[in-house]
Amino acid sequence: MILGADSLEKESPALLTTCGGIEFRNPVLTASGTFGYGQEFDALISLRGLGGLVTKGISPEPRFGNPPPRICETAAGMLNSIGLENVGVEAFAREKLPFLRSCGTRVLVNFFGTTFDEYVDCGARLAALDGVDGLEMNVSCPNIQAGGIEFGRDPLVLGGLVKACRAVVRKPLWVKLTPNTSDIVALARACADNGADAVSIINTITGMAIDVRTRRPKIATVFGGLSGPAIKPVALRMVYQVYRAQIPIAICGIGGIQDGNDAIEFLLAGASCVQVGTQSFIDPASAERIIREIEEYCRAQGVTDVRELVGGLALGQ
């Protein structure tokens, strides 16, 4: 059969992509902390249609999280200070993983610790589990042995942590970088130099909000993580800085993605895939729509393979 020009135009673009050692059916994943353990969304979205999902951050032991109020809305965004509440590795493996094994999409497990050894222990235990396609390290946690400074702020500390986890994690290892730094490129380089497969850019930006009537902070911990469309320009800038530095590491772009065009911007800036976060709160089925919109963009622009877009930012004349 000979296909006419019309049929060729209508042919679906290839959305298949690879990032950090994992092949995804499309470049749209859902971000840690905004998608529970996946099962919560089973009746709300077709999980099989997603590129992948990233679970809530898992620690070696269960954590109960911070006192309320934990969230507040800000201009085109929100602040949260949930406090890394999670069920812990054991309950995750026992109660959450059986569903994830059969959910039909790629599963990355986000993890963290409060000490160096906790990170290594947690990473090793999670990587050994069947049904886990890869790990994403959350390095925006206070290091309780170093006065509460986040692990992920100092390239030397971060590099050491990545190296130690790399040694015990035989699966793809991603690192979710904090934007609360003056040099995102140095952080990404520390990850690449120590064997990480990808960097997720960015985690939330530290912020605060005050209720002028009561003069109290709007969230109990005073500072929280800003997310939502308000942070997209910052996230995009950081993705592009790391891409432009030609560091040999894949990038997953995160920050305020609400629609297909937002996602395309991240791909053009150099991300191989993206994660949808806060938008899943606004509409749990958003990721599905965003995938559809990427497909429509490709069709309209004559892009036959979504990977052509990665780093395709046009500069100069």
Binding site: E40, F41, F64, P68, P69, C72, I82, F281
Partner: peptide, 20 residues
């Protein structure tokens, strides 16, 4: 309570309780 999602995912609407 403040909540972002309404479906038990954002964990924003926590209230202190007796049993846990």
């Amino acid at each position: 309570e403040q909540m972002a999602c309404g479906i038990g995912v954002c964990l924003g609407c926590a209230v202190a309780a007796q049993t846990r």
